[in-house]
Amino acid sequence: MEYRRLGASGPVVSRVAFGNSLTAGNQLEDRAATACVRAALDAGITTFDTADAYAGGRAEELLGRALGGVDRDSVVICTKVGRGGKPGPGALSRARIAESLDGSLRRLGTGHIDLYQAHLYDDSTPLDETMRAFADAVAAGKIRYVGVSEWAADEIARAAVLARELGIPLVANQPQYSMLWRVIEAEVVPACEESGIGQMVWSPLAGGVLTGKYKPGLRAPAGSRAVAAKGGEISIQRYSFLSDEVLSAVERVGALADEAGLTLPQLALAWVLQNSQVATAVIGASAPEQIGRNLAAAGKTLGPELLRRIDDALGAVVVRDPGLTLSRMLRARAATAASSPATPISSPAIL
């Protein structure tokens, strides 16, 4: 396992992190979820990602129990605020942050969170209020570093200015990123690089599509994320990853993986880690053995010719539009709803 600093001044993280968004408390029984965490530790993973919203808080509880007995200073525990708790406005208000943070600390069984991330931008709360609440939590020793997740470039830039003024260690952004989904490259990554913010990306395997298990013209296999995990079917189908056009392109990339002596998941993970701005990529697992197989890619370097052939194989199915950054998508929906009150606004069941 390799390790890298997250952002210009963040914690040292393993190049691959373990996340439990759709597994712990959902797709897996508790014993299996714990076995996956233990396998991650055995493989050298030191960075663990969860959120107060995952499985209604049970994902945090299970992670806390699974890490019981582990030297606390040897792991980086990351969680999020902004989608758990009560619905409605104020998801990143001072009161909601204080309430959610104390709940996360209790469920995780720890005295501090290494990286506390704002889970989606909150238009209903002044950004200054959110950042001051984070500053107070840092001063109290409850969190050590601050991050955001799925924010747009302009939101990140404004947060970075406030962070500097308040002395907040804003070091990370957690966006979706894969060889199929590259919407952060044009705007978000440059904005983060300018402010010393690193990328902790999620869904490097595009919700499992880049494992090769889904085939064009065939139904999703039983037990797969597309049918078995609450929220998993949305995270895949929302972006049309199961269209025959995408799946045919993925089969072409699979052939390139074979030529390179890699599995398709290994190639997909190596591709994400090839980006110099990506400090760590968050993977999940439904079985402990998946972790070791996929980690074989962590130290692989893909040559320019292979990268070119991957782009050629994927062609037009690659999504690059920066307007599809999740925060911007929600803004657009809100604007549409304001002009057409009958249009519902639903919170995305992903991340």
Rank of each mutant, 00 (worst) to 15 (best):
R5T: 12
G7W: 04
A8C: 04
P11V: 07
V12E: 15
A17Y: 04
G19D: 10
N26Q: 03
L28F: 05
D30K: 09
A35H: 07
A43T: 01
G56R: 03
R58M: 09
R58A: 14
E60L: 03
L62E: 05
A66G: 09
L67G: 01
G69Y: 03
G69E: 00
I77D: 00
T79M: 01
V81P: 01
G82R: 02
G84A: 15
P87K: 04
G90K: 10
D102Q: 13
S104N: 03
S104W: 09
L105A: 09
L105I: 09
L108T: 00
G111C: 11
G111W: 12
H112A: 10
I113L: 05
Q117A: 00
D123P: 12
M131V: 10
R132E: 14
V138L: 06
V138I: 10
Y145D: 03
Y145M: 03
V148C: 05
D154H: 15
L162F: 04
R164G: 06
L166W: 04
G167V: 08
I168S: 00
I168H: 00
V171L: 02
N173Y: 11
N173C: 14
L180G: 01
W181P: 00
R182G: 02
E185M: 09
P190N: 02
E193V: 11
S195L: 11
S195E: 14
I197T: 12
M200V: 05
S203V: 01
S203Y: 05
K213Y: 00
P216S: 09
L218E: 15
P221I: 10
G223Y: 10
A226E: 08
A228S: 07
G231S: 08
G232P: 04
S235R: 14
Y239P: 06
S240P: 01
S248T: 14
S248C: 12
E251N: 09
R252G: 02
E259V: 10
E259C: 07
L262S: 11
T263R: 07
T263M: 11
A270F: 02
W271F: 10
V272F: 03
Q277N: 15
Q277V: 09
T280N: 04
V282S: 03
V282A: 04
G284C: 08
G284H: 07
Q290V: 01
Q290G: 02
Q290M: 03
G292I: 07
N294F: 12
L295S: 02
A296E: 15
A298R: 06
A298C: 13
K300E: 13
L306R: 11
R309H: 09
V318G: 05
D321M: 04
G323R: 13
L326N: 15
R331Y: 03
A335N: 15
T336I: 14
T343D: 05
I345V: 14
P348Q: 03
